[in-house]
Design a binder for these strands. Structure first.
Length: 256
DNA sequence: ATGGTGGCGCGGCCA
């Protein structure tokens, strides 16, 4: 069995003890992190290695930043989307064993029709083209991370209130569908799931306690990996810890 | 309609 997880940690500096605890108890084979919010020189490599993981990262000061922790060493790393001149560190592609792992922190988009929204849609278009290319070379591909898109009304605590809003707009959902149409599956939906399962809750208004969440952290698997799918679990526990990230980990397990 | 909370870093941006 191979387990592959994603977690937007909202500052790895703050959340490192939680990441190490969680790795210790859950022992994922691969963990994609987003919003590490630190530069490469600041990456806590020794602590991660002491916990039994290798790490690759594309860091940035204050904002963004992505990393992949893995039991096996990652190779063939890409940190930039072809066709997009962008200093923001939001992508990290790497080969681990016979898997191609593509970790993304999709732009939030702020508000529909804002500059950041158009940047988000452009970023997603470039990601689409990149995934299409990567699938040709790497059929055993997993695309995972913080997509900042709730795929469906089922993935939103109050779909009516969120209709057409950022994270739920038609253009964002179409962009996600275009990604899926390259030949990927939302692994969470490959098996029966309980209702009202979310991966992100706003810090404000007691969002977590009231389960006012969205499912925006996704693990998308290519056909070859979907055929080996066993389960996809949202682990709510870290969201309930002291000083949590606003996101909680999502874990997909493959029978390989 | 606004603001509410958190991280970074020390004012204001981003989510």
């Amino acid at each position: 069995m191979v387990s592959i997880a994603t977690w937007n940690v909202n500052s790895l500096r703050v959340r490192l003890p939680q990441v190490l605890d969680w790795c210790n108890s859950t022992s994922p084979d691969i963990l994609a992190l987003q919003e590490i919010k630190l530069q490469d020189e600041q990456f806590p490599l020794e602590e991660v290695q002491a916990a039994g993981y290798q790490a690759v990262f594309a860091g940035q000061k204050t904002y963004n930043g992505v990393a992949i922790l893995s039991r096996e060493m990652a190779t063939d790393i890409i940190t930039d989307l072809p066709g997009l001149e962008d200093p923001q560190r939001r992508l990290l592609a790497a080969s681990i064993g016979d898997l191609r792992v593509i970790n993304v922190y999709v732009p939030n988009g702020q508000a529909v029709d804002s500059d950041k929204y158009h940047y988000k849609l452009e970023w997603l278009a470039r990601l689409h083209d990149f995934i299409e290319q990567q699938l040709k070379d790497y059929p055993r591909l997993v695309l995972l991370g913080d997509f900042n898109i709730a795929p469906d009304d089922r993935d939103v605590y109050d779909p009516e209130a969120w209709t057409g809003k950022i994270l739920c707009s038609a253009a964002e959902r179409s962009a996600l569908q275009a990604l899926l149409d390259t030949g990927l599956h939302d692994s969470f939906r490959l098996t029966e799931q309980d209702d009202e399962q979310f991966s992100w809750w706003d810090y404000r208004m007691n969002g977590f306690k009231r389960n006012l969440g969205l499912r925006i952290d996704l693990v998308l698997t290519s056909q070859a990996l979907s055929d080996e799918h066993t389960r996809c679990t949202i682990d709510r526990e870290p969201r309930g810890w002291e000083r949590p990230s606003d996101h909680t980990p999502v874990v997909t397990t493959l029978a390989i």
